[in-house]
Amino acid sequence: MIDSAPDLRIALYQPDIPGNTGTILRMAACFGIAVDVIEPAGFDLSDRSLKRAGMDYLEKAALTRHADWQQFQEWRLSENRRLLLFSTKASEPYTAFTFRKGDILLLGRESAGVPDDVHRAADARLIIPMAPGARSLNLALSAAIAVGEAFRQLSLSS
């Protein structure tokens, strides 16, 4: 049981697939962490698929929608939060990184990742190592792996 969730957030940059977003919202609700969606999304956030994947957990999810990258960046900087980008273009393994309370775990679009300016804006760029020849993991699975490691580290440091 989680007595108090670490002050983590998941940010989704212009997500494409409602099922992934719904699954991430469900996971976040179960762990007591917030989700930021940086729009435009590739689907209507009231989409039936989003509701199917998130089930009744969507009502419990702490979701903040940002109209665009600029609005999200302004908010993030005003909150003084680190932005950690999970990317197949990164070189630092997520397991070698030290997570801190207040971190935002950013995941890009399923179809295209994030643009170069978003990549450069991240405080750290992390990779989930995979077998040679593997291109990428499912976005919701990547979010779960990232949250799991951040939780593990932060629970050891409390």
Rank of each mutant, 00 (worst) to 15 (best):
R81H: 06
R65V: 14
G102W: 09
T88K: 07
A61P: 04
A124P: 03
R81W: 01
E110N: 05
L77R: 02
D47I: 11
N80R: 03
A122L: 09
T98F: 08
K101V: 15
L107Q: 12
K101H: 15
F86C: 05
V114H: 02
N80Y: 14
A121N: 01
G102F: 00
A96I: 07
R81I: 12
K89G: 08
Y57K: 11
A122T: 05
D56T: 10
F97Q: 08
G113L: 07
E110K: 05
H119R: 07
F72E: 00
D47T: 11
T64D: 02
F72R: 07
F99L: 13
L50M: 05
T88E: 12
G108P: 11
R48H: 05
Y94A: 13
A61Y: 06
Q71V: 13
L106C: 11
Q73G: 04
D117Y: 15
A61F: 06
F99T: 03
T95Y: 14
F72G: 00
Q73H: 08
N80M: 10
L105K: 02
G54C: 04
A62K: 13
L105G: 05
L50E: 01
D123A: 04
R52T: 10
A112C: 09
T64E: 10
S111F: 10
V118D: 02
A121K: 03
P115N: 05
G54D: 07
D123N: 03
A124M: 13
F86M: 02
F97N: 02
V118N: 00
R82W: 03
S87A: 09
K89M: 13
E79M: 06
A121H: 08
F97E: 05
F72Q: 02
A122Q: 02
R81F: 04
M55S: 13
L83G: 04
G113K: 05
R48W: 00
R76A: 03
R125G: 03
L83M: 13
T95W: 12
G54N: 05
D123M: 00
D103A: 04
K51W: 01
T64W: 01
D47K: 10
S49Y: 07
S111L: 07
R48T: 07
I104W: 03
R109Q: 14
G113C: 06
E79F: 00
G113H: 05
E92G: 11
A53Q: 08
M55C: 12
S87R: 09
E59G: 15
D116K: 14
S111V: 12
H66I: 06
K60S: 15
R65Y: 12
T98G: 08
R120W: 12
R76W: 01
R65N: 13
A53D: 08
T98N: 13
E59L: 11
R65D: 10
K60G: 14
K51I: 05
R109Y: 10
